[in-house]
Design a protein around this nucleic acid. Structure first.
Lengths: 173, 173, 173, 173
DNA sequence: CATGAATGAGTCTTCATTCAT
DNA sequence: GATGAATGAAGACTCATTCAT
């Protein structure tokens, strides 16, 4: 991965996140990355290839976020960590996460599969804690995480930290 | 509002919802509506004008959905109706709602303001029912509603009906 | 067919004939026709559509050249007219004919089918005149016509008129 | 001439013949030859240089084809050999010959000069045999040879072997 | 009201070519 | 000799928009 390749990736991430995939032209990306437009196509084939590269780069980051939760053995801790998940994301990574959420709508990429391991871990945790409908409880937590993430990234006025604290209290964690 | 105007609006709604605002060209809209491209501009000024018209048309529909909840006096019923809100939307209106969600991300339009009356009603309801932190409870419900709606419109495998039933049970409604 | 459409067709014919199809850019055609580049695509769909339109326009001209030969009843006259065919083409139509020949090579369009009616007429004529191998004689004439046309359009120094006279003498026509 | 140089030449010949000069990109040639694109330019300067190299390579082959005819002393044999010229070309060399014919149209390179020695030999032969207009006879033969070659390389349904036999019979050779 | 011809700026992409390594 | 990263100009084609009819 050359230096310019990374610059392209970085610029594309930033612009796709800010303006959206379709609203960002490859020429804008090139200008922003201070490279020739052609270089984008030499390295990533086409505009979608560029997007894929960004998405691929991100998959790892998502897994990294999940691993700490999925590996946890204490069920209460699993749920607590899940609820607090979004508080752990770096402000510098906002563009990346914003892009993830944006693309779910712009390109209709389902996030079900990505969330599957988290859902399993949560279902399992609620099960151990004797909840009647562990799977639905898990769904609810995921809905919460997704909602909080959405709100924060869209710049909502919702106080996410307080919401997390509140939910943790609700579940006696 | 002439017949052709409505056809344009309907086509634009459908296409913006399916493909996104930026990915839909005015020519596609015109073709889909079986009118000349020029007519779009005569009626709506420009592409953004067309979008505004759709959004405006939608504002009313949102208010209509809210009014039944906000006018309700029984606090339990307020919460129940809020939770069941998304179950009341017509399948024929999917495009419309999908567009609303899509645009929140594509154009970064905050939905805080739109949700304000609902939040007030819910806060008030939780307050009446003696909940300790009624505002946070209200936020949580909204988060869930938004999440469920979101999931359904994105074609997630989440069973929305069951989630609603589950929430209603959780809140003893 | 609007005035500008015709101008585009005319310019394309001229440039495709002079420089070749692939070597002629749509922007060159547009500039030469004094229209916007987009107009080409509005009217002809794409570059190949433009080519097809030109070719289609030409089919008629070819038929017109053939009809006089095919309709002739005197076998000697059929052959004579076939040999003299290329002498009847207007200098103003050079571009058109050049394009036809060029495309046979550039796009590997077989001319067999187009020549079929002529071949039938010639075969028939030679047959009536009692030639032993009328079909091969017909082929030879066609080879001659094609060769003369080629030579003239490529600007060869070959004296086509004299060649025709010579062949007519050879066949005692 | 290194191994890679030959591979480039071979690939270029193949592609130029198949797709045409303008429709073949240097990158396609490089890929087909399994070399870096830069190498083409190091060896041949630019795309036209590559073409020139191929053409130069071809000149020799044409001379080789002619030499056997031009050196022949028996006039009948000269004409016979000329007519049969195209039957002597190797199927493996089709690409090469196709390119020669293609370029005559794509780059408007006159073939008059190349054919000059053949024309002289034929004129001379017809003269010796007492034909009245030996130069025109020579021209006619060349027209036929060119036409037959042309037809074969374009994949016409013309039976070239039979045409040659027919011509030989016609000229009592 | 409605059409469709027309445009110019912009889209993604490919091109031939250069150059540091 | 050979590579492959890099470029700028040009490629075909689409866009939102205007305007005469």
């Amino acid at each position: 991965m050359t230096e310019k390749q990374e610059k392209i990736l970085q610029s594309a991430l930033e612009l796709f996140a800010k303006e959206g995939f379709h609203a960002t032209s490859t020429s804008k990306v090139a200008k922003n990355a201070c490279v020739s437009e052609g270089l984008i196509f030499r390295h990533f084939g086409n505009k979608e290839g560029l997007l894929s590269a960004i998405l691929q780069l991100g998959e790892n980051r998502i897994k990294a976020l999940f691993v700490d939760i999925v590996m946890e053995s204490d069920p209460k801790e699993v749920i607590r960590k899940a609820i607090l998940m979004t508080s752990g994301i770096d402000k510098a990574d906002y563009d990346f996460w914003k892009l993830q959420f944006k693309l779910k709508w712009e390109l209709e990429v389902s996030s079900d599969k990505k969330m599957e391991p988290l859902k399993m871990a949560l279902t399992n945790a609620f099960n151990k804690l004797g909840y009647e409908e562990p799977e639905l409880e898990a769904n609810l937590i995921i809905l919460f995480i997704d909602g909080i993430g959405s709100a924060v990234l869209k710049g909502s006025e919702l106080d996410s930290e307080e919401m997390m604290r509140f939910l943790i209290k609700k579940y006696n964690l």
